[in-house]
Write a protein that binds this DNA or RNA. Sequence first.
DNA 1: ATGGTTGCAACGCAA
Length: 257
Amino acid sequence: MSGFKIATWNVNSLRVRLPQVLEWLNKEQPDALALQETKLQDIDFPESVFTDIGYRVVYSGQRTYNGVAIITRDSINEKITDLPGIEDIQRRVLAVTVNGVRIINLYIPNGESVTSDKFQYKLQWLRSLEIFLKQELGAHQKIIVLGDFNIAPQPIDVHNPTEWEGKVLFSDQERKAFANMLELGFADCFRALNPVLQAYSWWDYRVNAFKRNLGMRIDHILASQSLIAQCELCHIDKTPRSHERPSDHAPVTAAFI
DNA sequence: ATGGTTGCAACGCAA
């Protein structure tokens, strides 16, 4: 596939955000869009809404929590919905191949707080993810890993890094796990294309965080080494976050030559 | 200020 545009968006309920997703698709015309937190069982996924406008869809959902989906222009192959080595009812992984590009959509656990059991689950999940990514790198050349990572990689990705030091989303353990991922052979598209730009992809619903720009960059698009040289643009679209009834996340887009 | 908001679903849980 040459000349393609791919995006990720944690929509925090596809049922609520469906009109915004359709509007955004129509305006941006990506070749692929990875969604997280669809919060829909597969039986409830609004498949025809997307096929009617010329997209194909694949999804791995559950009710109330989690749920991932990928919307693409071209045909979808080699679907995987689980990490190796862990039993997990939570639907957080969706890997597919489209036009020779491996697309791995992730909704990495939030972790709640570093003292929580959910934080240990997050770290274990990240260890399994690393094993999975190694496998994928052995099987595919062109890989894009994207989604809600729930990790801010560097101080520049946090509105107040001093305050967030050691806290969930920005702890040393999580940042190390992110760095390990890059060391496997991936680049962070946004940071590769915008080395010193401070921009966020998520703002808490509370405390007027969006208006005050108290955000974090936790939604990412990683590209394998054979793809990163072809990445010509990566940006975060804050527009939908300013809409009525927004998701707390903004979509992130990368374009490849 | 240990608060605040949102979504789901029906009470508190997760984010």
